[in-house]
Design a protein around this nucleic acid. Structure first.
Lengths: 353, 353
DNA sequence: TGATATTAAGTTAACGTTAACATCCTCTCC
DNA sequence: GGAGAGGATGTTAACGTTAACTTAATATCA
């Protein structure tokens, strides 16, 4: 009907002027608090409808000094890890009346910072960060924490005296995965997804090394293989190619491993492809263990033995800890929660009877 | 060091007072515009650092009347469809300096509305909506569009004279998938994932029906099966169980189909499980086609023939169309773009030679 | 040498709300 | 019938910024 000119949206004051009342009266109608006569309320609501009035959240939140919104920053969104976390966080928050804004940062410091800033700029009441850590990003995060924004980090290194942390016990998960292979009699066990030089950062690799050590198995650095030449931090699905290449390299060794522990399920999937391509069978020739128990793990051939980390609980915990800080219920020292992982044994390590 | 009391954050005015200049001068330093002497700039920056000053985005955006932020509402976040879309949108936007806030709404009208409202409350400059449509949600979306917020919908019905739409050609995709099966000689072809009664809403089902019609094959309603008793709109992964149950139902028919077209890849995966469980082989006994070409499709046994829809392009287009509306470059009639799908033939329909 | 830029500030008035307080009117109830 | 309670408004002053304008000092040039 009416020409759709992009007119300026009506404000609360406009509505008030139209109805012939004070802005405050309109505000009371909109927010449903304070005394307003039925007659006035109706007139106001009518005008609101007619004028397509929508309240301006910026002004509102500016005045109220809170947004009831939490920001979540995740890296690779296509990783089931992230999506399960996001869902759990959202659910816990919505239960308490908080909204969730999610920002994606594809594993670059620049984008991390952009995401942090844009969320903080919108005055989110708190921040949950689940990206991989990097120096510049962490620096900005520290500043934000310093400025008083409540923060919880998930599955990620970060030290700050007012920032809580939640993570899975990646060390122990890696340990158990490796132990499982050792228990099956394997002596030459490879690790795919990161080079030996990353051992200080990567808990799963540390767990692997610890399990070998505990059982008196020597560490063969040639059996630990990541992507050569570059950083090992790449988005989820693309680690599949790392797994594939890594496995090829392991298979070409003079004495190849009889089992491999892959850094995550995607890597494991890539490794499986390489094994099949070489005409070898799983688990008879090579046993494979993954990590994360993504939906993929059920559908590989054979189904993948993997380590499940409790994403849902991590999300819930993160949300709860953050809300506690936001509402100021407690003002404790930074807290760190580490949650147990669970080994899920499937046919990529043990043939079905 | 200092007790970490949650003090009120410093404002621009606080900084100005500390340095002994006007607030405007501090603003100029922060935003890097206007003239400021090197000496003053340094003093201000020093104070900014010392006081942990962060600008208040609410106030800033309120004054500037824009946020350079776009909101994206998606349903099931664990669906690769959504995540690919989100990534493409984010990339296109960040290229133009816009931020992206993502809200998840798990397929409920209440959550749709909550997501729309929370984004609009934060005065996003525009909205991209990719949830399944529902009556109440659409009503609110109309109101928001009426109030002048630029909106683009993706892969979803919605009619409004200022709302653009992008989608894949689901009808044609469904048609080609079915045609492919017909070309292979199949005459009894099932559809899994929605009941016959949903045909008016579901383009993929319409394509299936059209292909049958074109080749003179009769429609057997018993071969079209969804989840019984409930709505067919469920989150991605859980359609796996629908596929499983649906296939079981089809297999128990007196005269079972020789091929099925599943509404999406998850449904197809469930169907495959049921076929295997029945001791039948794919594609010899039953051929299976999916839809979406999710990463899963490559890893099923056998790999899944499926229809790929160009998610990345849909995301890019949506972002571009929205930005055009936001910047007011054009104020056209609502535009609708429908993008071609591509049939990807794998071994779930054609045995490898 | 005056006229005109340029640089470096400061001042004012919003942006659209709402908390806090003030005002006035109408009932109750002892 | 006067005190007190409650209902229905209005007024004022922020929330923290910045656009637009003003002022004033210094530099530049014909």
């Amino acid at each position: 009907m009416s020409r759709n000119v992009r007119r300026k949206p009506a404000t609360l004051t406009d509505v008030a002027a139209t109805v012939g009342v004070a802005p405050m009266t309109v505000s009371r109608v909109i927010n449903g608090n304070g005394y307003v006569s039925e007659e006035t309320r109706e007139k106001v609501l009518e005008a609101v409808k007619k004028m397509n009035y929508r309240r301006n959240g910026l002004a509102r939140n500016l005045k109220r000094q809170k947004t009831e919104t939490v920001g979540l920053v995740i890296g690779d969104i296509s990783n089931p890890f992230s999506t399960e976390l996001a869902n759990a966080v959202r659910e816990s928050l919505s239960f308490r009346g908080y909204n969730l804004f999610i920002c994606i940062s594809e594993h670059s410091a620049k984008e991390d910072i952009a995401a942090f800033d844009s969320l903080v700029d919108h005055n989110v009441d708190g921040l949950i960060v689940a990206t991989r850590s990097n120096e510049e990003g962490d620096e900005r995060l520290s500043e934000i924490a310093d400025s008083g924004v409540p923060i919880v980090v998930v599955g990620r290194d970060f030290k700050h005296d007012s920032v809580d942390a939640v993570s899975a016990d990646n060390f122990n998960g890696g340990f158990e995965a490796t132990q499982h292979l050792i228990d099956l009699g394997h002596k030459r066990i490879g690790f795919i997804g990161a080079g030996f030089e990353n051992r200080s950062r990567l808990k799963r690799l540390q767990g692997y090394l610890a399990a070998l050590a505990k059982h008196g198995l020597s560490v063969d650095e040639r059996l630990i293989t990541g992507r050569k030449g570059t950083s090992d931090d790449v988005p989820g699905y693309s680690t599949e190619s790392i797994g594939y290449e890594g496995m090829k390299r392991l298979l070409s060794l003079p004495k190849r491993p009889t089992a491999v522990f892959a850094r995550n399920d995607f890597t494991a999937v890539g490794a499986i492809s390489a094994v099949k391509e070489a005409g070898l069978s799983i688990p008879q020739d090579i046993a494979v263990v993954g990590f994360d128990d993504t939906p993929l793990a059920l559908h590989t051939m054979p189904p993948l033995t993997t380590v499940r980390q409790p994403m849902k609980i991590q999300g819930q915990l993160a949300a709860e800890m953050l809300l506690r800080r936001i509402t100021g219920e407690v003002e404790p020292e930074a807290e760190e929660k580490i949650l147990d992982c669970e080994l899920i044994i499937r046919e990529s390590t043990v043939s079905q009877v």
